[in-house]
């Protein structure tokens, strides 16, 4: 994937005429092919009843705070808007559509598992990785704890164990990779959802399903599959009964984020030609004789 992008950049750097035409093409093509068949989840917030069973299942799956189910039946918690943290990879928040304030709806948030994740691009040692089958996974052994991923994430998802002095980790939804999704297992939260507001499948299927639902129930949904295009697409996608502006999901452009810096990086360090050229140039200047003229002109 990155190879393709680099190659493309070489061409672009060489020929600025074809620059704009080539770029939109690149935006489409350079996502890994597997992304289309990769695992994804569709969250239907119109079906979600805010029971927080997904939180409970996640908590149990990852041994986070080991609270029993009763702790998750507490609905008063919806009074505040919570964020995922190192003790809860997913949280459910309550929202109200201003035009229909009597009926709340719920949004489960967790790592979106972007198709081209900013955190993966940011990571200095490749401790974060986007697997071909969908999940964005973290390798604590590699991590140096620089927290650039936290800065970079457009959804503000990675959470840090600030209180751990010796072995702090970046914590976020793992997409339950450890449950072996390839063998027909589904993430713990998807399995637990009583109303089946969460649907697990391949990304392409789910996009089709989402649009079919919107078409079938135009009154129930806004015509927007959140995550289909946001930041180049995410593996977790949402349907909602009202504008996503009401929820905590941020309004994001369809452009992938990593090219912002990767294009710069790969242009400046293209086969190390620019640095080596600079080195050569400075070497030439240094090797040439001292410039007496300049010496004289110097200010006294």
């Amino acid at each position: 994937m990155s190879l393709g992008r680099r190659d493309f950049l070489g061409l672009a750097a060489a020929s600025s005429v074809t620059l704009l035409a080539g770029k939109s093409l690149a935006n489409e093509q350079q996502l890994p092919k597997e992304c289309k068949d990769a695992c994804a989840v569709l969250v239907d917030t119109a079906v979600c009843i805010g029971c927080r069973k997904c939180e409970w299942a996640c908590n149990r799956q990852h041994n986070l705070s080991n609270q029993d189910m009763a702790a998750f039946d507490d609905k008063t918690i919806f009074k505040i808007q919570r964020r995922p943290d190192d003790k809860a990879y997913t949280v459910v928040n309550e929202f109200r559509d201003p035009s229909n304030p009597e009926k709340p709806y719920y949004t489960k948030v967790q790592c979106m598992h972007c198709l081209d994740p900013a955190c993966v691009s940011a990571c200095i040692v490749g401790a974060l990785e986007k697997l071909p089958n969908g999940p964005v996974v973290y390798d604590a052994w590699k991590c140096i704890g620089c927290r650039y991923c936290i800065v970079a994430c457009p959804f503000q998802i990675p959470a840090y164990e600030y209180d751990n002095a010796l072995t702090p980790q970046v914590r976020k939804c793992t997409f339950c990779t450890e449950r072996n999704l390839a063998e027909g297992n589904v993430p713990a939260c998807v399995e637990a959802c009583p109303n089946e507001a969460l649907t697990f499948g391949t990304r392409d299927d789910l996009i089709g399903l989402a649009h079919a639902r919107i078409k079938a129930y135009p009154d129930r949904y806004v015509d927007h599959v959140y995550g289909e295009h946001e930041v180049g697409g995410t593996s977790w996608m949402y349907l909602a009964p009202a504008d996503f502006k009401n929820t905590e999901l941020p309004e994001l452009p369809p452009d992938r984020i990593p090219p912002n810096t990767e294009n710069i990086q790969h242009a400046v360090f293209k086969w190390f030609v620019p640095p080596l050229a600079l080195y050569g140039l400075l070497g030439l200047i240094m090797a040439s004789k001292p410039d007496k003229e300049n010496e004289q002109e110097a200010e006294k």
Binding site: S2, S121, G126
Partner: peptide
């Protein structure tokens, strides 16, 4: 662990 995409 080299990660050429990362500016950091």
């Amino acid at each position: 662990m080299w990660q050429g995409n990362s500016a950091l």
